[in-house]
Nucleic acid binder design. Sequence first.
DNA 1: CGGAATCCCAATTAATTTAGTCGGAATTCA
DNA 2: TGAATTCCGACTAAATTAATTGGGATTCCG
Lengths: 158, 158
Amino acid sequence: MKLSTRGRYGVRAMYDLALRYGEGPVPLKATADRQMVSEHYLEQLMAGLRRAGLVTSSRGAQGGYELARPPGEITIGDIVRVLEGPIDPSDCVAEGDGVDACERADECTMRLVWKKLKDCMNRVLNSISLEDLCKETASLASGACGSCRAGPGPRCAV
Amino acid sequence: MKLSTRGRYGVRAMYDLALRYGEGPVPLKATADRQMVSEHYLEQLMAGLRRAGLVTSSRGAQGGYELARPPGEITIGDIVRVLEGPIDPSDCVAEGDGVDACERADECTMRLVWKKLKDCMNRVLNSISLEDLCKETASLASGACGSCRAGPGPRCAV
DNA sequence: CGGAATCCCAATTAATTTAGTCGGAATTCA
DNA sequence: TGAATTCCGACTAAATTAATTGGGATTCCG
C-alpha cells in the first residue's frame, strides 16, 4: 500500500502553489525545480488537476499555474483522488458501480473491512487542507525536505 | 490506492481457514475452490503466510493449512502487511530505515500527512480480527460473496 | 512585430509490478 | 504403492508506472 509518485509529487506541487497563493501564476518550471521533479512529468499531473478544477492555468510568458481556490478549500484528499484515482481498497466499495461489482455486496463480510479502511483513509486525507500544511510548515524548521536543494545527503521525493 | 489481489485473496483464504479453525488441516484446493482463486497462485500467498508464522502446514494426504493461532489473535493487518508489504504511503514513514530515506524527514511537512494516513490505516486493519469477521458473518446472510458459487450473476473476488 | 516563455497534447518507452501458469520434487496417509 | 498434498523455482503475459520526446499553440515584453 504505497502511493505512487503521481500522488506524492502532486501534493508537493500543490503545496508549492499554496505557499505562493495570491502572487499570480507560478511557472511549472519553478515548481519542478524546487520540488526536484521532472517538468514534463509534472505537466501531466497538472493537466489532471486543471481538468479537475483544482488549479487554473495561464499560457504564454509570465503564465503558469495557480490554485483555483484558497488553500483552505483544497484538501490532500482532493488532490490524491484526482491523481491516484478513487480510494477504493476493493472495487466493491467504489461509489456508484461498486454494488454492480458484486451481486452480494451487501452480504459480504470482507466488504465491511474494505469499507472501513476506505472511510478512514478518506477521513484523514479530507481533514488536511493545503492551508494546514502551510501553517504546519511555519512551525517546522524548513518546510518540505526536497524544497531545499542545498547541501549533501539524501533527500526523499516524498 | 487499491489493494492488490494478494491482500484480498489472502484475507479471504485466512477467513476460510478461520471458519474451520480446530477442525484439522484444510487442503488448499478446498479453500481455492470455495474462494474461487487459482490454487497455484494461492499457494504462493500461503507460503508467505507460513513463513510469517500466521499459518502452519502439514504435507501429504490429509494435509493442508491451519491457522497458527486462534482467529481472535490474527488481525487483517497482520495478513495484509505480510502479503502487500508494510503499509507505508511514502518510504519516509517506513519503520527503521524511513529516517534514512530522507535527511530532513523530521522537518518535512508532507511526511506528517503520510504518517497520519499510515497510522490510521494500521489502526483500522489491526482492530479487526478473523474472529470478528466470523462473528459478523453469522449476523449477515451468507458470509463472503464468493463463498457461494451457486446461481448466476456477478461475484466480486473481494 | 519577433522572440522568449509558457502551457498544451500525443505518442513512445523502459522498467517494474501484477497475476498468474507450469512442471516437478518431496512428503505423508491409507 | 498410490493418491493427496505441500513445497519450490522458473517462466510469462499484461498492466502499470514513471517518465521522455517532440512538437504545437498562446501570450507577454521589448
